[in-house]
Design a protein around this nucleic acid. Sequence first.
DNA 1: TGTACATCAGTGAACGCGCGTTCACTGATGTAC
DNA 2: TGTACATCAGTGAACGCGCGTTCACTGATGTAC
Lengths: 229, 229
Amino acid sequence: MTPVDARQRARRGEGDRLRGEILAAAEDLLVETADESAVSIRAIADRVGVTAPSIYRHFADKDTLLLSVVEMVFGRLDAALEAAAAGAADPFDEIRRKGRAYVDFGLAHPEHYRLLFMCKDDRKKDHDLDGPAVAGAGAFNHLQETVERIIDLAAPGVPRPDPYVMTCAIWTGVHGVTSLRIAMPGFPWPAIDEQLSMLAQPWHDALCPTAADHGGAAAVRRRADGSQH
Amino acid sequence: MTPVDARQRARRGEGDRLRGEILAAAEDLLVETADESAVSIRAIADRVGVTAPSIYRHFADKDTLLLSVVEMVFGRLDAALEAAAAGAADPFDEIRRKGRAYVDFGLAHPEHYRLLFMCKDDRKKDHDLDGPAVAGAGAFNHLQETVERIIDLAAPGVPRPDPYVMTCAIWTGVHGVTSLRIAMPGFPWPAIDEQLSMLAQPWHDALCPTAADHGGAAAVRRRADGSQH
DNA sequence: TGTACATCAGTGAACGCGCGTTCACTGATGTAC
DNA sequence: TGTACATCAGTGAACGCGCGTTCACTGATGTAC
């Protein structure tokens, strides 16, 4: 219920309101149908309570619309990871929380996740790449900052891995867990925390050998215990 | 999309010939167009040099057809992994080769990979699950056998991880590398071998601490060198 | 104040498209006599 | 041996569908005079 500003002479009624409603409807459809192909211009218009052509007053075409949804979801993922990291005891804990939050986000919104990381991005070819790319880079950079803090914690004498490569490794790892679960929900997967600690624990021990009894063997022991902390 | 010239009608007993040609055409289209949505009944029929309705003499519907393609591709993936493993020096080497072969297979046939591991499997809901499930289980079981041989090699005193969980971890890892590259080909990824050794090396060191100087630190050093063996 | 007018968000009808699928059929093939 | 017939792989036309997108339009709104 935003009152019309007298200064904005060109904006009659609530022109931008429909734009927001369209994006919200597209997202709703994605959630409800859990099927990207069900998100059509017509379905979105129906959901908003408007006819299909009026979508085109706010978005050049369908790809532009979906790109805006992608951008929005990227922002939300980033926010979810940052929120999960808040209050972490140390950088290792922070990565652990972020990893778990990443998987949770993907499993809670599988079609959103699909849109971000499991679809062709041909769409972007002919359009403005910057929006989604910038939004996605935000989350990646935040992750890399955490990784850099971890590397700073590495025991003396331990060579430091490249933060960029390590960030990619972490992303790739949590993506593997998330996307295979989304694609093959019927498969008898081990517990999420068990899978995540299998990824993280050997690295923790490698970077902080003093914290691990007898080097890397600690990782195996911890995992084999089934303890998920 | 040039149709095969003047196809000869199958003889009485050779009804299965077209079936094979249909499957091959579906696969060709997947490879050439790199787009699952381009693989339509009509396009397949055109490619074979036949009209669309004759597809239905050999497959109940489109989903059944695609399921057969999936089954075929699963078999091919399994064969590629086994071939790559042949001649490995030891189980660790075998896993390394299989991991690399898995990624190579996915990147060489991205749309096949998509079909196996990045798509909704709703299709399977109303159809016979057994074919693809059995074919997929073949590759998984072969991988698990290798994992079991690795675990047998673990140094005395090192607790042995559960082979099933470890197999899932490896699969998840190589899938993460493969599928993110397919979904985001524009991203500046590190070298494949660098990514794979980041996954494998800490585990190698953890299971065989004697082979690593100063415990897990060896993994970091090896990786930081950029040496990809 | 009332009235004429400009603005522009949203409409209704239509377009051409490719899709999966169906149906009655055609005509080459193999076989029985 | 030749001929009639049954078989059945593949055809041609059509179905209804939902899609993205276009176009000329309508009619409520805000403003100028």
